[in-house]
């Protein structure tokens, strides 16, 4: 009796386990077909299938396509965005490794799209090998988007990561810099100033340079 019940439970659990991804794929495909012109949906689906074959996260790609549809973007632009995103996800995954969280890969892709060099991602991974990089990467991309120069933002996040700053510390750092910028401070000065207040960051840490050279160029 116990064996029969166990066998039945195992069968049902296996069916559910294999059914979930299939349902998810079907749902993604249905969403795209419902919102995009047929040809565009087919092209986007093909691109997403190729991303899936590379074990890249696909939900953000579906999201980009649907965002384009709801913002009434052209088919060409939607396909270009999906293709570009796949490239960034691929770069991030290459650097962060196969064991990276999906969220880390997506955040890393965001940083790459913001103009952050992939070598910075590699150094961040080395500086914070066991803790997820999702929040530091989101903060890095946000700082760049707010006008903090790439080298300043990259170094600040690297120094904080080396000082074992927690996710909450990165969140506060971002918020304080944002407030300073809103109050009229220069983005670079606000970042340098606020980095001093991150718990664990010593005066010596503030002298730390990134092991890689980040080009001093205007943010994209």
């Amino acid at each position: 009796m116990t064996f029969i019940v166990f066998r039945r439970l195992t069968t049902i659990a296996a069916l559910v386990t294999f059914a979930l991804p299939t349902c998810r794929l079907a749902a993604q495909s249905a969403q795209l077909s419902a919102k995009l012109p047929r040809e565009t949906a087919l092209e986007v689906t093909r691109l997403i299938d190729s991303a899936r074959a590379l074990s890249l996260p696909t939900d953000p790609l579906v999201g980009v396509a649907l965002e384009g549809a709801n913002r009434h973007a052209s088919a060409e632009r939607i396909v270009r965005a999906v293709r570009q995103y796949i490239g960034a996800l691929h770069s991030a995954r290459d650097v962060l490794g196969d064991g990276a969280l999906d969220a880390e890969v997506v955040s890393g892709a965001g940083a790459v799209l913001a103009g952050v060099n992939t070598s910075v991602l590699r150094e961040l991974r080395a500086a914070r090998p066991k803790e997820p990089l999702t929040v530091p990467l989101v903060v890095l991309a946000d700082l760049v988007a707010r006008g903090v120069p790439l080298d300043t933002a990259s170094r600040a996040v690297y120094v904080a990561a080396r000082a074992r700053a927690r996710d909450a510390d990165f969140t506060l750092l971002r918020r304080f810099i944002e407030q300073d910028i809103s109050a009229g401070a220069s983005p670079a000065a606000a970042t340098s100033l606020r980095l001093r207040n991150v718990p664990g960051v010593t005066p010596e840490d503030l002298q730390t340079q990134l092991p890689v050279t980040v080009p001093r160029r205007p943010n994209p």
């Binding site: 980009v64 965002e67 965001g110 991309a141 760049v144």
Partner: peptide, 15 residues
Amino acid sequence: APLAPEQWYGERNSV
């Protein structure tokens, strides 16, 4: 909230 760096369609989103 933090800004999303990607601007696929010209406008910023949040994260």
